[in-house]
Each structure stands twice: as C-alpha cells, then as structure tokens.
Design a protein around this nucleic acid. Sequence first.
DNA 1: ATGGACAATGTTTTT
DNA 2: CATTGTCCAT
Length: 728
Amino acid sequence: MNNPLDSLNPQQQQAVTAGPGPVLVLAGPGSGKTRVLTQRITYLINSLGVRPYNILAVTFTNKAAREMEVRISGMTGEQTQWLTLGTFHSICARILRREAGDLPFNSNFVIFDQDDQISLVKLALKELNLDDKRFRPMGVHEAISNAKNELILPDAFTIQSYRDETVQRVYKRYQELLLANNALDFDDLLLWTAFLLEEKSAAREKYAHRYEHILVDEFQDTNFAQYTLLKHISSFHRNIFVVGDTDQSIYGWRGADYRNVLRFEKDYPDSQTVLLEQNYRSTQSILDVATAIIDRNPYRTPKRLFTERGEGRKAIVSESYDDHTEAAFVVESIVKSVSAKLAQPGDFAVMYRTNAQSRVLEEAFLAVNMPYKLVGAQRFYGRREIKDIIAFLRLVHNPDDEISLTRIINIPPRGIGDKTFYSLRAAAGRLGCSSGAVLLQLAKKGEVPELESLSPRSKSSLGQISRLLADWYSSKSRLSPLGLMDRILNDVDYHFYIDDGTDEGHERWENVMELRRLAAEYPEDGLVDFLEQVALVSDQDTLESNSNVPTLLTLHAAKGLEFPVVFIVGLNEGLLPHSRSFDDPEAMMEERRLMYVGITRAMDRLYLVFSQNRRAYGFTEPVNPSRFLADIPYHLLEEINPTNPNRYSRSQLENHPERWHVSNTSSVKMEEVQQHFHPGMRVLHPSWGEGMVLNSRVQDRDEIVDIFFENLGMKKVVASLANLEIKT
DNA sequence: ATGGACAATGTTTTT
DNA sequence: CATTGTCCAT
C-alpha cells in the first residue's frame, strides 16, 4: 500500500509528522498548507491512533472546514463527525451553548450581527443621553470591539480622555443590553469562551483534557482573545499545531495580530518550526511580482518563494481611462480568452479593494450577457427582506431579542409606531422583563394591566402581533425552520408586503425564496443551527465551485483561494492602498499584504489594472496609479494596449523603467535608517531581558538586529518595533 | 401612524 | 452618489 506521505515534500512531511508538542508552520502562499493540515489530522488518526473526538481544528471559513472533513473521512474511514472542526466563532458558539449553565445567558442565545450591534450601541447611547453625532455609534462600537478582542472588560477599560470615559459607560451598558436580550455579539463568542476557560477551572480542564491535538489555520489572523483561548485549551496536552504566514495578515483592523506568531514562539520556546517555501500554485514570474511587493515591508523574515512550474508569462499591466473602461477591459479580455479557447470562464477572478467597485464590473458583465458570481454573503444577508425574515425567526426562537422585535413589530405596517412601542417597552420595564415576554403574556391572558392606558387602536394592534408571536412560539418545537418560516410568511402575507409589483419588489421576493431554499436544508430541530449558520456565514461559504463562470470578489474574500487567471482592478492611490491607510504605516503595510494576497492567488496569469480617472463622491477625478505598481521591476511586466486608445490621450509617459515613478505620490516617505546597534553592544529587550548584539544590518528601511539572550539563544529583532534599550 | 420629500452626511476590508 | 435620517403633510 502506498504511503500518502510520499506525495509530500520533505518539509510538508516534517510538518505532518512533527511533534509531540507545539509546532509552528510558516507556510508561504500556495505551499500546500491545507493539504498539510488535512494529512496531519489523517496521520494523527491513522498512525497515532488519536480518536477524532480528541482533535480540534480551527479553519478560517466553514466551507474550508466542510471540505477538510470530507477529505479526512475519505482517508481515514473514521467517524469524522466526532472531530471538532470549524471557525473560531462557530466552535465557540457550540461550546457556549453547552456551557451556558455556568454563564449569564441561556443556551438559546442569538448572535447579533454588525447591524444589530450598531443598533444596540445607539440604544445604549440614547439611554445614557449621549449625542450620537459626537459619539458616532460606529466609532464607539469599534472601540468596544477592540477592547473585547483584547479581553478588556468594561471595568478594566483604559481611560485617558473624556471620550474613553464615555466609551466605557456605553460599553458597560451595551454589555448589559446584550445579556438582557439573551444575545451575544461576534466578539462575545470569543470573549465569553476565553472567560469560561479562564475562570471556570472545571470547564477548562474538561476541554484541555479532551483536546489532545489542536490545529489552527491562518494563525496570523488570530486576535488576542483567540490566542488566549487556544492557550487555555492547549494547556494540558500542549499539542498545538499552528499554520500561518505573517505576510498574509490582512485582518489587523479586526483585532487580528500577526505578532501572535512571534508570541507563539515566545510562549512555547520548545516549539518546532517548519518552513514551507515551495509554491505549487503560481508561475515564477507571478511569484517574482509578489515578492517585489512584499519585500518592501520592513517587519518580516524574508522568505524565498520558489516554484517548479517555470517562468510563465509576464504579468500584464493595463491602464484605462476610468472604472468603466477598466471593467470593459476586464470583460473583453475574458471574452477573448474564452473564445480563443485559452481558458474557461470559471478560470477567471476579478478582485478589488472595496465592495462598491463590484457594481461597475457587474454592469460590464451584464452588458455582454456573461454570467458571473459575486462572492459576498453579506450582500445577501444584509438585504432588508432577508433581515426581516431572520428577525421573525430569531424572535420566535428568543422572544427577548429586542432588536429583532423592533425590526418586525410593525412589519407589515399594523399601526404600531414609536409611541405604542415605547409604551410596550415601558410596560416591560415595569414588569422587569422583555417586550417580547410582555407580548407573550398579553396573548396568553388577553390583557396586561400595564398596557391598559393605551388607546383601543394601539391595544388591538399589539394584540394582533402578540397572538401571532405566541402562536409561532408555541408551535416552533413542532416545526422545522422551513415550516416555521412558511407559517410566518403566510401569516403576515409577506409576499404581498414585499412584492409591490416593481422589478425590485419581485427581486426581493426572489431573495426570500432563496432563503427558503437555505432553510429547507435544516431538520426538524434545526432552528438554532440555521440561525447560527446565518449569523456566522462568511463570504466564502457561499462560494460554489461548480458553475464555471468568472468570480468577482474583494481581496479580503480571496484569501485562501486560487484561480488560473486573476485581475486586480482599481490599482490606484486611494483605493489600493486605500486612502484610510495613508497616514498609518501599519495600515499601509497591511494594504501591501492585501496586494500580495491578491497576486499570489494567481496560478498562470495576472492582470494589474488601473485607471486615470475615478469617480468619488459623484465626481470623476484624475487619480494616480498605485504606489505598489512602482515597486514592481519593469522587466516583470508587460503593458498591453488599452481597450480603446481613442477614448483618451495616451499617457505622456514613455516606455522607460522609471515610468511608474513619475506620477507616483509619496505620502509615506520613509526616511533613511541609521544603524544604531553594533556587535558587542549590550541591550535590554522589554520582555526578553538583557542580551548581546551579535550582528546588525539595515534592511528594508529598518534595522534588523541579531541578539543573543542568555535563556533564549539568538533572536532576530526589528529595531523600530522592539523598543530596545542600549546598556552602557 | 405613515409615507414622501428633502437634507445632511459619510464612505474599507468582515466573523 | 447613495444611503440614512429628519421633517412635514396627510
């Protein structure tokens, strides 16, 4: 029988069979890390006899988890349903439902999405009489979210300004409101799980003992809460296997911290490190472009990406007049390649920095009648009609969900306005329960004394919705998610309400039908799962691979995917890099990594597309090409004629190596770096203590210092980040 | 309570 | 510009 390990290269084999103990796999793009993870789990089960029940694997998307499960079950023939496999958020949700007895919410909590979270912040602001102009809900929420990702509870919130003090008050109230709603937000899933494992030793021991082996994908995109969580769960067996690539860290704005990779090495000094540098995806010229981009980031250990796939074709750079010509160029290129039988429609992906950019592209595809798929669950689940239906379901599942009640209490319009709803909430306040509970009580008893002061009209309206709610509530255990949904749609005549005869109305109803199809996949008792799935879907989860049409997606959504031909469009200053990152070097580095991620998705061909003009705020303005283009050596690029040369005057720049530099703005000008450290110097590192400088060199606009520490041995340190002190 | 008209206001990425 | 909020008339 042939050994599955034979198909792996030596480094991959080393990773798969590494251990016991902590293992860090630094995996460049396309280096087969998914295969390594899958093989590793298979190896644990088949060769080491580990039971699937004792394995925990964290993937970045639910889709990746499902795919992995299929492959593992094929290779092991084991009962893979016993594996714990999923995203951080879904795994935490599962744990919290199981352990809710130890926690201040009950197990049928709902998960609040972004919109719900903002609504709740608004509510908290209102309750505290704060001006939402001065304290923008989004901004306040971001601060709260950041704190949660750092496991900072309201009481520990650092106060350095009046604003901080206010945020702290809102944060406190926000958390109270969540609990009152029996709801958790995304961050809570991590926060409460970390709390559970930290504070409840019985729970910690249970999970730490159970999970003999822990595997984590995309480790560079974990945040502190996730890191802490892992630390607790792995505290007993210490068999923690993490795979990541700091160069592909693109979720810093969400609290992800690629320094967790460094933290890992520090917290697990006995960890084994495996480097995967061979790329199986791209041609060498694509890798060269990628390397040219990422090499400009100072804070990184240089990696040598190589491939045996050969040189391949040069990357194509194309300049267009504006975003419309840009889109036309993309579509035309695809049409040409397809009709020349050089590629299939499904081979193409078009990537962009912001979702808004997809519209122009969609129009261009529509114009030539070419079907496409757009990655983005957000777009579907964010639609009004979908949110309505989900709100109904969520409310039936958990009547304390005030946000959902607020959404649907007057849908379709049944004469309940602000005033009536306010009275209902006031009654709930006096009774010490939620508005939903009051409604259920009203339906049950026919009257609630606290509501007697209302006008007969309002009372009858409330009575109507309360009877509906009570009816659904009492039948929910007998109905499948689909059955319940149909019941609701029918009872409120949602079709009549949403489909007003216009094209848009029709489309909205179609979306409801689509949601119906999704609900149909859940069994009798699947409401929790359905709602959880809906709350935690990632954009990629909805991506189907069987349609053979071009894919449109953001660069973020492209993570982990690959395509034969990749277009990156909108390569202009302000868009990529995005203008919001101009004055923040960290953010700028992340933009660069984003570009790197995009490039390295390409297997055979890469198109880099930018334009001369772009509309912003409704006006078309001239824009500069992205500074990142200037970083690519000209010999790696091939320029092709723009779609329609007559539409604009050709760029005044001629074909010489410096041409991109000419119009390039330089808003972040990095200074020349002076060498401060020399061999023999003694230095003090904030966490590693005292050490001696062995070597130092200026590289990539930063100084890299090799230091020898007594207990740790030789470490490479980046001077600008390490905060080294020179001992005299 | 509701719907429409107008004004302001704000713009990344997503579990 | 495109969405969201606010004001006003019904």
